[in-house]
Simulated scan of single mutants.
Amino acid sequence: MRDTMKIVMLFLAAVLVLSACGNSSKNADNPKREDATIMYENEKEGGTMNTGGGYGFNKFDLEIDVDGKDVIDVEYEVAKNHRAKYVNKLAGLNLKAQEAFNELDPLFVKFATKKSLSEKDVKENIMEWFGVDTYTKFDLEIDFDDGTKMVIEDHK
């Protein structure tokens, strides 16, 4: 009887250990399975760098003309269809969607979230970023997440 009890106890211990360590998921052994992603509520509505809200603004519209010709045109808007467009005739770029977003991301990270900068500093930083020395038209509109706007219009 004692040997039978030991065998039963050993069997139950083995079952508990194996069931606690097991993974019965379909993808448990698949090396290409996707890990779970944590998504916060505001990410669904544009609250990260990938969807725009992380920059501190939801609209960025810039147009720079040199000698009366459109040279730089940036349109970025966080909306249901999150869109971006970037045209830089000096660099020969005409990008849309994700390609435009990838090119604009460093600019947005560096300058756009600093709404405490003066209009003069913002204009100088943007001109330096794009490598433009002079302009005949500089139009910038930024709609910040808190409802404030920055509008710079300068025509020479």
Rank of each mutant, 00 (worst) to 15 (best):
A14G: 09
D67H: 01
K32N: 13
F60K: 00
E124R: 04
L16F: 11
E141P: 03
M49I: 14
S118K: 02
K96D: 14
V78P: 00
M49N: 08
H155P: 05
L140K: 01
K115L: 03
I7K: 15
H155D: 14
W129D: 12
S118N: 04
D143F: 03
S25H: 10
V66M: 04
V8T: 06
L90G: 13
V15W: 02
C21R: 14
K59I: 04
G53F: 09
R2E: 15
F11L: 12
E99S: 15
D3H: 10
L18K: 04
G68T: 04
L140Y: 02
I72K: 00
N27S: 13
R33Q: 13
K156D: 13
K115W: 04
N94K: 12
E141L: 12
K26A: 14
W129Q: 10
K137E: 12
V78E: 04
F60E: 00
V17F: 13
D139F: 07
V17C: 12
H155N: 15
N81W: 07
A79I: 04
D143V: 05
E77H: 02
G47N: 05
L16V: 13
K156G: 08
M127N: 08
R33Y: 12
Y76H: 07
G92L: 11
I142W: 14
I126D: 01
K32T: 09
L117M: 07
A79R: 10
R2N: 15
K123Q: 08
Y40L: 13
N23F: 14
E43R: 01
F111I: 13
N58P: 03
L18Q: 07
G22H: 10
P31Y: 01
H82T: 08
D146Q: 06
L62T: 05
G56D: 06
S116H: 01
N94D: 15
A14V: 15
D133G: 14
E99N: 15
P106F: 07
D61A: 05
E77G: 06
S19V: 14
D154V: 04
E41H: 08
I152T: 07
I126S: 01
F101H: 14
K89T: 07
D139N: 12
S19N: 10
G47C: 03
Y86G: 12
E45C: 03
P106R: 06
I64N: 00
Q98G: 05
A14P: 06
I64Y: 00
K120H: 02
E103T: 09
G131Q: 06
G56L: 01
W129R: 03
A84V: 06
N30F: 08
G47T: 10
D65C: 02
D105K: 15
L95P: 11
I126N: 01
D67R: 00
K32I: 07
A91K: 15
E75T: 06
D145G: 10
K96G: 15
D145I: 14
K149W: 08
D154F: 00
A84N: 04
V122E: 04
G54C: 06
G53W: 06
E63D: 07
K96C: 10
S19E: 11
V74N: 04
L117I: 00
W129Y: 15
Y86W: 09
G46A: 11
A28C: 09
S116C: 00
E77C: 03
G54A: 09
F57K: 00
Y76R: 03
R2T: 14
A84W: 05
D133L: 11
E119F: 00
K115C: 03
V122N: 02
F144N: 12
E124H: 01
M9C: 10
T48K: 01
L93W: 11
F144S: 06
F11T: 14
T113M: 06
F108I: 03
